[in-house]
Each structure stands twice: as C-alpha cells, then as structure tokens.
Write a protein that binds this DNA or RNA. Structure first.
Lengths: 262, 262
DNA sequence: CGGCGGTTTGAGCTAGTTCAATGTCCGTGG
DNA sequence: CCACGGACATTGAACTAGCTCAAACCGCCG
C-alpha cells in the first residue's frame, strides 16, 4: 500500500516553491524532480534524458491560482508541464457550473496542444498557485525526437491518464459521496506519493472544498460534511490545506480503490 | 446538425447482420464499411488502405450478447474491431454494480491490448449481439506499419475516444438525469450518423434500459421515466429497439451537446 | 399456454441539494 | 495593535431528484 518514493522527501517543496513570483525557483532540478520521478517510473531514463528534462526548467514560470492556461476551443501550440501546484482540465456549462475532468499534478504534462493541432475540447487552468513550464511545440517535438525513452515514458503516462479518466467515470457513476471522496483521496495519495510529495501519509492539498466538489459532482456543502465524516471515523485528518491519511487501508477499502494502474 | 453520411444508407444493416452465428457475413465489405467510413473521416485513406482493412474481415466472428471479450486484469494480445452491434468497456464493483465506461460502436476499435502489453484496467464486453474482428497483435502491428494513414486515423480516433471519455465525466458529474440521457442520445446520433447507421433520425439501439442506466449512473427505473418524459415532450420516439430523434435541435439544447469533437 | 426478459407503474424513502446564516482565519490598512 | 473585509469552512433546515422495492404488465418464443 505504501508507495512512497524511495528518494529523500523534501517536505513542503510543492507549496513553498509555488508561492508566487517573488519566490525564486529553487536550486537546480528542485522542481523538475517531480517530472523526472514520474517519467522514470514509466520508462527508465538515461543521464542525457534527465539533463534534457532539466533543461526545460528554462520555460518554467510561476502562475497564479485560477489562471486559464488554455481556453476551450483554442488551438494551443505548446506543451504544458506542471512542476508545482495543482492544475486541472475542466469544462463549464452555460449555467456556470464547472466540472473538473482531471488533475494535473507536479510532474504531469499535457501535450495535446503541441502534438496535434486540434482545438481543445476543454479548458486547462490552475487550481492553486503553480509553477508551470510552457514548452513551445518545436522544442517539445525536438525533445521527443532526440529522446525515445522520454517519448515512451510520455506515451505510457498518457495511458495512465486515460485509465484515470475511466476511473473517474466509474467513481462518479457508481459510488456514493463518501466513497467518491475517499477514492479521490486515495488517488491523490498514490499519485503524489509517486513523485515523493507524500511524507508520513501527509500531503498538501492546495484546494478549496469547491474543487473536490466540482471534481466529484457533489455540492461543496456535501463535500464538507463528507470530510467531517472521514475525520470523525479517524480515516483522515485535515487542518488548513494539510491532509493526512490516517488509515490508508481502511480508506481504500471504503473506496474500493485499486492501486497500481497509476 | 445533420451529419448523416453521404453514402447510401443500408437501413438495419446493424441488426440483421449481427443477429447471430447462423447469419452469414454479408457480401464483400458490407460491414467493414463502418470501419472504412469512420477511419476515412479521420484521415483520408487510399485504395490500398481500404483493401487492407477489408482484408481484416477474415478475423470477424459473430459474438453473442453479454460476452466478455477481455477480462479486467488480463493481458490481451489482439486488437478488437467492432463491425456490428454494440460493445462497451465496463468496470464492476464488488457489490456487482456495473459502470459502462464507453461504447464501442461499429467501426470502433480497441487496440490497447495489441499495442502495449499492459493488463487491462477494465473489461470489454458485448452489449448486444455483435460481429467483431479479433486481429492478432502481429497482424495489427503489420497493418499499422504498412499503412501510415491508417495509423494516423487510428491515433486520431483515440483522441476522439479520450474526448468522449471526458465528455462522459462531465455528463455524469454535472447534468441531471434528463440532461444526461439526452446527451447520450445526441452522442449516439452523432457517432452512428458518422458511420451511416442513422436514417432519417432513426437508428437501432440494441440495448436494455439497464445499459443506459449503467452508463449514466442512474437506476433503470429512472431511465425509464426519463425516456417517457422525452417521448412526452416529443423529443424522441422509441418502439422496441428502434429509436427516432424527433427534435435533434431541442434535444441537443437540452443536453448542451457540443457537436463536432466526435 | 406458460414463462422469461424486459418495461412500466406506484409508493415510500434517502442521499444529496439549495439557500442562507454564522463562524473562522488571515491579510491589509489605519 | 486593532478593526475591517474577503475568502472559505461550517451549520441548519427545507426541499427534491433519484433510489429501492415490489407489483403488474407486455411481447415474444418455445
């Protein structure tokens, strides 16, 4: 169950490096680490591969919360790599109601824009302050061309993303509010764990309760009550934006969470 | 709005050719037509490409309703091409409750098994009697290798499938039962239209009300009532397994259905 | 004719919504 | 240092969409 990364854990690296423009990017590969970590998990990378990825840091910029990185209907011509913070894909109804379709966590990347010149069927926006690399199409294609292992890892990452999307359909479609929420937390634990952003079952959740609500197809009021129930039952503890999974086993049982598909 | 295929419509081709083992495959490319139709829509195919696809007919077999084509957790080593009937991806909970994750309609194909040797995160099963080609990995890879346009079309088809999956998350997550159902019908109209299986707003829906229910995260009782409401309001007519969209415009407005992403 | 698989209907119930008030934390300006 | 305001979290209370269970009904096939 415990899938924490074997590397030394730099606690809070996500938040304090995402705090804003005045905060300089940390030394060397401090943030690309998430990307390296994640891609390496899909296909082992060589030193050259890693160096090339570290080189992408030049494209990184701090970005405020609730910034739209790519509008629906728009053709984008760069790849996005999340280095810190939470971003997400989302759709909006005419009524204003929003549905979050996927989380983009540190190490995740999104290259639909760069690879295929299709207009996006959804928007991409930051859910928290983020540090994000916008890699121009040419540079990105060049990267993939020169580094087949990276290309492979990226392709596998896409498969994992598809699997997650299916998991979300199932989650929203056939689970109760409590179970859905538990499932989401399990997913976050696993995904953040795989990039070393979990320490002792604890991680930062730089979201508003509105975000899980729009993720899970629930009202924020209900999410609030569900979180209280999870706390009451001793499954989690949550103070501010710091979440701790107290009973991962029981939580994943409640959610029928299947680890391993990433 | 009307995206009906320009080719001559062979009404009922889906059902009568999917009826069962005793029913011989129709003359020539009668059923691959759907595949040709669909892929050609993504990337124009040459005569050689088409011939190669027609060649796949040899792998086609009639398959009964509710047959599991690929079990969850299993590694599959062939690509599946649906030539007639409805199949789908699905997940099941321990309680037995099922969620349908995607429909595989005639012309759709599913090559995760053949391309990457990963165990499936979901099952694939027929929802109606089908005619399906199981193409062995080697033959499939060979096909893609020799026919780059087919490979391109397949890749684009995958993008469209991903977009559909996102649409489903949004559908289940933020729409009411009525809207969800309307949206699903719009999707079916569009997808079946693109393979010429819609005639005069009418198409075969070889499903039980349980299937839409498990698709939309509703109970079959509720789906029943929703369908009645749609009929009452003159949006659709439904007799047996024959569905007619009477007011496509109003229906897609109700569902906030965005055509065009396929 | 009888039965099976599916649809339809009814009635009661509950998970989750909506709306609105209240509480809490935190940053800002005086 | 404190008052103020804004953004979130929490609570309460009324309401409702959709669920469950169970009975009837319908069409089809053997």
């Amino acid at each position: 169950m415990e899938t924490f990364a074997p590397t030394a854990l730099k606690e809070l690296v996500v938040t304090d490096s995402a705090r804003g423009p005045e905060c300089p990017a940390p030394e060397g590969g401090g943030l690309v680490r998430t990307l390296l970590c994640k891609l390496d998990g899909f296909a082992p990378l060589t030193e050259q591969d890693r160096a090339a990825l570290v080189g992408l840091t030049g494209y990184a910029r701090p970005i405020e919360r609730h910034t739209v990185l790519a509008e629906q209907e728009c053709v984008v011509d760069h790849a996005l790599i999340v280095l810190a913070g939470f971003a997400g894909r989302s759709k909006r109804r005419a009524s204003g109601r929003r549905q979050i379709l996927a989380y983009l966590l540190p190490g995740d990347l999104c290259d639909r824009g760069a690879l295929h010149g299709y207009p996006l069927d959804h928007a991409i926006e930051t859910l928290s302050p983020c540090r994000i690399a916008k890699v121009p199409r040419a540079a990105y294609l060049d990267l993939l061309g020169r580094h087949p292992r990276i290309a492979l890892a990226v392709q596998r990452a896409r498969l994992a993303e598809e699997a997650t999307a299916r998991e979300w359909v199932a989650n929203i479609g056939m689970r109760s509010g409590l179970e859905r929420t538990a499932h989401l937390l399990c997913e976050l634990l696993e995904r953040l764990g795989s990039i070393g952003a979990v320490s002792d079952g604890q991680f930062d959740l730089p979201l508003t309760q509105m975000d899980p609500a729009e993720t899970l197809g629930l009202s924020s009021v209900h999410v609030n009550r569900v979180l209280q129930a999870l706390r009451r039952d001793g499954l989690i503890s949550l103070r501010g934006h710091r979440l701790r999974i107290l009973a991962p086993r029981r939580l994943s049982q409640l959610a029928e969470f299947e680890a391993g598909y990433l």
